[in-house]
Amino acid sequence: MTPILETKNLHHVYSDGTPFRHEALKGVDFAVQRGEFLALIGHTGSGKSTLVQHLNALLKPTDGQVLFDGKDIWSDKAFTRAVRFRVGLVFQYPEYQLFEETVFADIAFGPKNMGLDRDEIDARVRRAAEFVGLSEKALRKSPFDLSGGNRRRAAIAGVIAMEPDVLILDEPTAGLDPYGSEQLLENLRRWQAAQNSAVVMVTHSMEEAAACASRLVVMADGAVKMQGEPKAVFAHAAELERLGLDVPQITKVFLRLRELGMDVDTSVFTVEQAKAALLKRGEGAPC
């Protein structure tokens, strides 16, 4: 099956021809499959944010291709615009892009640009608001009267309301408290399951990646360095560390236990798995 999104040998150079020239992407080959939850991990400056802007046709490749459903997104103008609706992109700190008088109108901005009729827009806004957990009352408020967390939700709802085939979020939990982050991720998982759309989450939190994603892509220095299931990627703890990244806390605990001479399975990366692994071990020999 053709992946829903794919990049082929993607290069991007910023401010070419000035002293600020910077090669952000150096030949990225990367694919997003339909309906998967993918986490894009990388250190600050590894090119993650540049890459996601390519996926939604906001940046034009210096070299290489971006394919949506097997077709080059830059092949014609109408298609480029259509791709923007089918690939929803939520930027970092999206709450700073709210501008309408009411939250409802702001969420409706995307669907309205798609040229949908009123009833459909209305239905989509309500659906999106429900997914992110915004109340009916909040929809009538000005976005600037909301709390920080709710503003973030409203901004994400604005993209979700376009009901894209791929939803990309650039560090959606940055600056949220632990409870807020947890809820946001839970909402995203629910949305993904209900919609059967693909979700790409850019993050540098290994815990978040471990908790949500079915596949991880690790970026460093403008290229994809590793990809695969969380288990497979986290097995390379030393290499991740070399790339300025980390493994989840719980995996570290288990690696240390192994070092101390305990025979434990070090491929765990969530607390639930750790619990299961320890209990299984308990059944055998006493600790």
């Binding site: 802007q53 906001l58 923007r84 992109l89 930027f91 709210l98 501008f99 901005f109 376009m162």
Partner: peptide, 29 residues
């Protein structure tokens, strides 16, 4: 601009009034 473009805002087509209106989503934030 990128963020509003990602939501399908169109700054390049239309007459002068439409283009001026299209600036609101940029200027307010």
């Amino acid at each position: 601009i990128s963020a509003q473009k990602a939501r399908g805002a169109d700054f390049e087509t239309g007459n002068l009034i439409r283009r001026a209106k299209a600036l609101i989503p940029i200027l307010v934030p």
